[in-house]
């Protein structure tokens, strides 16, 4: 017994009331699991809409069917779908489109989802260059990395920033706060 280093014992693990022994999943809102192939199928449908020129429909569709319950791969696929839509919409169309979504039923929720994707997109340095590793933090979203110049990241970042500006104008700082404290991550 004398060899035991008492300081390294995790006393919390021995306490039945300790936070370590909680089932943390009960603290988060329930999400339905989605497989990566389903997300892939959805991406195909949305691309179809996009090709047909229905940008608003595509964005709406992508934000309404956000795969909270998907694994990392599925979430990655959906992120790329959303980024593709965002990049295909012209700057002058952003504000009218956002305010139309905001005024519709459940629109504020959709814009919160969009805000999540903007932050997630910004945390990727090269969003169009496939899945690069990112640094997820305990909060569920990643810090903005400094831009690596010379790749497509700079251009994508400027798209995110202009969307972000327009989005805050319409949905307010409340939307940013919701991204930070929402336990359902994209």
């Amino acid at each position: 017994m004398s060899q035991v280093n008492w300081r390294t014992i995790n006393v919390d693990a021995l306490d039945p009331d300790s936070a370590l022994n909680f089932d943390m999943s009960t603290l988060t809102p329930a999400v339905t699991p989605v497989s990566a192939s389903e997300v892939q199928g959805l991406a195909g449908q949305i691309r179809q809409l996009l090709r047909g020129g229905d940008h608003e429909g595509a964005l709406r569709g992508a934000l309404e069917s956000v795969p909270y319950g998907a694994d990392e791969k599925g979430k990655e696929i959906h992120l790329h779908t959303v980024i593709e839509i965002l990049q295909s919409i012209r700057q002058s169309e952003m504000s009218p489109l956002l305010s139309r979504i905001y005024q519709s039923e459940g629109g504020s929720e959709l814009l919160d989802v969009l805000m999540k994707y903007l932050y997630k997109g910004m945390s990727h340095t090269t969003p169009t260059g496939g899945a690069k590793q990112m640094a997820p933090q305990a909060t569920g979203f990643s810090q903005i990395h400094p831009l690596r110049t010379g790749d497509g990241g700079g251009q994508a970042m400027s798209v995110f920033l202009s969307w972000h500006e327009k989005l805050v104008e319409i949905a307010g700082p409340g939307s940013i706060v919701r991204v930070m404290c929402d336990r359902r991550t994209v």
Binding site: S108, E109, D112, A171, G172, P173, G174, S175, V177, R178
Partner: peptide, 8 residues
């Protein structure tokens, strides 16, 4: 639930 544009 009312989600506002404001700070918390």
């Amino acid at each position: 639930s009312v989600a506002t544009q404001l700070l918390p």
